[in-house]
């Protein structure tokens, strides 16, 4: 195995590469004046306050959180029955549904975005604010589908059999055994879909770009008219939200396993 200091050096270099752009953005976000300078001149957190005080930024924040919250719930509602069905029954045709659920995430996002644009325009619903919730819910179904499939795979079959032997019917098994074991995977699937929906640009832009301003759309629009420190503050807020959510998943769940470090079949 490699000695510790060369690998520490490698980690330090990659850490620097990943953190450098964010560090500069954090720096410009605390500038006292409305200028793009680094290192920052003076120190002020007022640009973070601006996200909540400025009605334009605040309504974009509310729109983003609202879309992400409802879309992630919808994604889980679609993914949960698929994952459960594949675990409960031997049904090859259900694999097709699973592949459909995985497809949006593997294809370049612009394709899904254009499909939705064509679809909602044909229905005459183009620009309706709620269409982005369905679009994101479908687009991000992959994430809860992956976490939930892992979760069902991890259920010890002996537990279910024991419950059935002792007379529990299917509903009781679901309520007392399956659901408690699956709950952490539901939560992480929700969290993944929430964070990614919060950050998503192209689907939201193509579907409701001219009627609803989510935060990524707002940042992009603001960039066209030049720089304002609020966009730096929003960016840092998003990094913080993502780090907090994934940190919580790691704290209460098994992140290496969710990322595929080992599967129960390998045991």
């Amino acid at each position: 195995m490699m000695g510790t200091w060369p690998s520490r050096l490698v980690f330090a270099c990659f850490g620097l590469f990943l953190a450098a752009p964010l560090a500069v953005v954090a720096g410009v976000a605390v500038n006292e004046k409305k200028s793009l300078t680094f290192p920052p001149e003076g120190f002020s957190l007022s640009w973070f306050g601006e996200i909540f005080a400025n009605p334009e930024w605040f309504s974009a924040l509310l729109a983003s959180v609202g879309v992400a919250a409802s879309a992630s719930v919808l994604a889980v509602l679609i993914a949960l029955p698929i994952a459960w069905f594949l675990w409960r029954w031997h049904a090859p045709f259900a694999r097709i549904v699973q592949v459909l659920g995985l497809a949006p995430f593997i294809l370049p996002p612009v394709i899904t975005a254009l499909g939705f644009l064509a679809f909602w325009s044909e229905l005459g619903l183009y620009g309706e604010p709620w269409t982005v919730v369905i679009s994101h819910g479908i687009f991000f179904v992959t994430l809860p589908l992956v976490t939930l499939t892992l979760g069902f795979d991890a259920i010890d079959g002996a537990l279910v059999e024991a419950a059935a032997t002792m007379g529990a019917d299917e509903k009781t098994v679901l309520r007392t055994i399956v659901f408690p074991l699956i709950r952490p995977y539901i939560v992480s699937g929700l969290a993944f879909a929430f964070v990614l929906s919060l950050n998503e640009y192209i689907v939201a832009y193509m579907v409701v770009g001219f009627t609803v301003e989510t935060l990524p759309i707002k940042i992009f629009n603001a960039l066209r008219y030049g720089y304002t420190p609020t966009m730096a503050a929003v960016s840092i807020l998003f990094v913080a939200v993502a780090a907090a959510v994934f940190g919580l998943i790691a704290r209460f769940g098994d992140l290496p396993r969710l990322m595929g470090a080992w599967s129960p079949r390998d045991e």
């Binding site: 850490g15 192209i202 990094v239 994934f246």
Partner: peptide, 18 residues
């Protein structure tokens, strides 16, 4: 993993701006 996921989930707008 937390760090990598945080960067991965960042909006392209934010990466471009950064």
């Amino acid at each position: 993993l937390v760090f990598l996921l945080s960067v991965l989930s960042l909006s392209e707008v934010i990466i471009g701006f950064a």
